[in-house]
Nucleic acid binder design. Structure first.
Length: 224
DNA sequence: CAGATCACCTGCTTGC
DNA sequence: TGCAAGCAGGTGATCT
């Protein structure tokens, strides 16, 4: 993407699906993904890690990203890969959730992280959801009962809604567009609590690796 | 096609 | 004190 692509473009709308942000322009679409350390700062001062600066009529939007796992791309037409994104994790009802779950195989945590299953569940929220639902991250999706699926669905919604309310988890450096840190990290029950006692039963939280991601769970509360 | 693995990137933590 | 190694993770490419 270069300034030539979007200079003078008119913004016609802004949408979000999971972690993906879409800015509809009169000549295409801007897709933005914050990755892990990406930030969009409204009227922020561009610092050492500013990767893109958008001069708008009413202010300046700075895209800042320390680890550069995020992306800002311009597309004249939206690529097919975005069509593969699942429905937004916050909006899905139980029937659709259960129907989609039944078509999947493998470890439940890997499925939760898969953005074609649902869009929007990252590593922290997968761990926190599984703890709230009392489901072991290694549980096989094929063997999840409808009752447990209901707990998973309810826990996912609860976890994400609370996280949004607290404006996210500022683990490394996340801040919102006003530069404010999130507060959800203080609510974490298992994430990054390896070796510490479970708040419910006192058992020590364990860390394993599932789907190449650090995975935290209570060996007593969460069952296969 | 599905699942597993690696590369990307840099600040912070750990170990010697 | 200093330095190297390990770790964090969302996604896409590559491999099996």
């Amino acid at each position: 993407m270069s300034a030539r692509d979007i200079g003078g473009a008119r913004i016609e709308g802004v949408r979000r699906r999971g972690k993906q942000i879409f800015v509809d322009l009169d000549r295409g679409v801007l897709s933005i993904h914050l990755g892990m350390t990406g930030k969009l700062l409204w009227n922020g001062v561009p610092g050492k890690y500013a990767r893109a600066i958008f001069e708008l009529d009413r202010g300046t939007l700075v895209y800042d990203d320390i680890r550069q796992l995020g992306r800002v791309e311009f597309h004249p037409t939206l690529p097919k890969r975005f069509e593969r994104l699942g429905p937004d994790a916050l909006g899905i009802g139980f029937d659709e959730f259960y129907g989609r779950l039944r078509k999947r195989r493998g470890h439940v945590k890997a499925v939760l992280l898969n953005q074609t299953f649902l869009a929007g569940v990252g590593n922290i929220y997968a761990d926190e959801t599984l703890f709230a639902a009392r489901v072991h991250p290694h549980a096989s999706v094929a063997r999840i009962s409808k009752a447990r699926a209901q707990r998973l669905h309810a826990s996912l919604r609860q976890t994400l809604e609370t996280a949004v309310e607290f404006r996210g988890s500022s683990i490394s450096s996340y801040v919102d567009s006003n530069g404010a840190r999130g507060g959800f990290q203080q609510m974490h029950q298992v994430y990054a609590r390896t070796g510490e006692p479970c708040f419910v039963c006192g058992a020590l939280i364990r860390r394993i690796v599932v789907a190449q991601r650090g995975t935290h769970y209570c060996p007593h509360c969460q069952r296969l």
